[in-house]
Design a protein around this nucleic acid. Structure first.
Length: 472
RNA sequence: GGGACCAUAGGGUAGCUUGGUCGAUCCUUUGGGCUUUGGGAGCCUGAGACUCCGGUUCAAAUCCGGGUGGUCCCA
């Protein structure tokens, strides 16, 4: 039982291997692009969602819409439909009987939700609406799928939908959405770049799209979240109107934003190593594992003390377990590493005699002797927060080292294919941008900031600094 | 969208070129037993597989066609 594939040299193989060995998902389910969440993986998912929901619930209400969408609703918004029509699964039969109207399995829920918004919204008093739901969605991917990264069933899609009186309020909501996601990614110690997506790569039907991209260790970027300003396009399509204070009837402005399984994929991919998972403490299903070192003599005393420590930690709010299995200590250590439990406590007869325990950190493997008479809870709390800080710094440093300014167009391919995100200056022209993508065979992720000087491609005045990368 | 490769126990593999020796190899996993236990212990004894459909043949894990699934590369 070993992780095959080097994290850096053979990232794909390593990723497949860790998902299997650490029992995150079972991707042998016999339908392309669909896999099973296993108990260990599902717990990680649960704690990630818990953090996300905690952030969302401050300013959003959770709802749940149906899985199926009538064909007529899905077809209403032309641009939106074009973006998804190749990927929609259809329900065509009820039993043996063909349905009068085909039903789409949601590829995303705008067209399920917005007809209801038009029923709910009457007056400006009803606004803003801010709701979210965590659901599965289905997309008929024709390319080759990858577990958690490119799937046919997105099992975990937390999508938010908001409605506002003015365009400005919607724009502000986009910024609020970005801020929420930043907080989540900080909790997960996942580094990110926020990009204003180029016009040809925005969400179908949106005015503009901001996207969160992170960098995998093979140098490809992964889009892990998106935030869209929908303007009033959908409001017009779905006939959503409100009566303003002045008595006018107007279309409101909308936003939507979402995160998926990919957050968990990046969590695993970014922190994991050759020995297995490394999990940020806040989402580790088990935060501390206690390994009693047991010999024939003195077993009872050791177990008693181990349980005592467990209870203290439990009362202190930790998710803690004792590894009581009848296995050699070494085997348990390997499991501890594979499962990415942040802290391991060893306690044996020798330690008991010295009134000590040994604390080992998963991220650094540093060992520390810790007196049993000290305040264990605050000791471990500070240890966990150190782990989180370290993971965050490590991950951010890795990404920062691989974001490279490029000033000459013939260097783009070489530098990016070497595992970097390139920063280049761009005039902002659609044709020019497409030309850069075609020439380099890479993707422009979007605008990161303003720029002065010359466009790397056409030499006209540059407007933006943009990122270019190889993407998943 | 195009291409390459692949499918044998839970995981990884040998066998396939040249059909018969396969009642299918080895490692890992796994049940039971004994001895062990501060980093994957040892011995004994069990369990577990030729992706599916069709074709060729006296005979198919092996050859041919298709389906399904998987991996990688390019657009």
């Amino acid at each position: 039982m070993t992780i095959t594939g080097d994290v850096m040299e053979d990232f794909s193989q390593w990723f497949h291997s860790i998902l299997e060995e650490a029992k995150i998902i079972d991707s042998r389910y016999p339908i392309k692009g669909m896999s099973v969440w296993l108990p260990k993986g599902f717990k990680i998912r649960k704690y990630v969602l818990r953090e996300l929901e905690r952030l969302m619930d401050k300013d959003h209400d959770e709802v749940l819409f149906p899985l199926l969408i009538p064909e007529t609703e899905l077809a209403k918004e032309g641009i939106h439909v074009k973006g998804f029509e190749e990927e929609v699964y259809w329900v065509t039969h009820g039993g043996m009987k063909e349905l009068n109207e085909k039903l789409a399995i949601r590829p995303t829920s705008e067209t399920a939700i917005y007809p209801m918004f038009s029923l709910w919204i009457r007056s400006h008093i009803d606004l803003p609406i801010k709701v979210y739901q965590t659901v599965n969605t289905m997309r008929y991917e024709t390319k080759h799928t990858r577990p958690l990264i490119r799937v046919r069933e997105i099992t975990t899609f937390t999508e938010s939908h908001t409605v506002h009186e003015t365009y400005e309020q919607a724009s502000q909501q986009v910024q609020d959405g970005i801020a929420i996601y930043k907080r989540l990614f900080d909790i997960l110690a996942i580094p990110y770049l926020v990009h204003d997506r180029p016009s040809w790569d925005k969400f179908p039907g949106a005015e503009y799209t901001f996207a969160f991209d992170t960098l995998m260790r093979d140098g490809k970027t992964l889009q892990v979240g998106t935030v869209h300003n929908l303007g009033d396009t959908f409001a017009k399509t779905f006939d959503i109107k409100y009566e303003a204070a002045d008595g006018d009837h107007r279309h409101p402005y909308q936003t939507c934003y979402g995160l998926s399984d990919r957050v968990i994929a990046s969590l695993i991919a970014i922190h994991g190593d050759e020995k297995g998972l490394v999990l940020p403490p806040l989402v580790a299903p088990t935060q501390v594992t206690i390994i009693p070192i047991i010999f024939k003599d003195g077993a009872e005393d050791v177990l008693y003390k181990a349980n005592e420590i467990k209870d203290i930690l439990k009362d202190g709010g930790f998710r803690v377990s004792i590894d009581n299995r009848d296995l050699r200590a070494g085997k348990k250590y390997y499991d501890w590493e594979l499962n990415g439990i942040p802290i391991r406590i060893d306690i044996g007869p020798r330690d008991l005699k010295n009134n000590k325990m040994i604390i080992t950190r998963r991220d650094t493997f540093t060992k520390e002797e810790c007196s049993l008479s000290e305040d264990i809870v605050s000791n471990l709390n500070s240890c966990l927060s150190k782990i989180n800080t370290n993971l965050k710094e490590k991950a951010w440093n890795f990404m920062r080292e691989h974001v490279v300014e490029i000033d000459s167009s013939d260097k783009i391919e070489e530098i990016v294919l070497n595992g970097n995100v390139g920063l280049i200056k761009w005039c902002g022209g659609y044709d020019c941008g497409k030309e850069i993508e075609d020439k380099t065979n890479l993707d422009i992720l979007g605008v990161q900031g303003e720029a002065k000087g010359e466009c790397i491609n056409c030499n006209k005045n540059a407007k933006h600094t943009i990122s270019i990368a190889k993407t998943y």
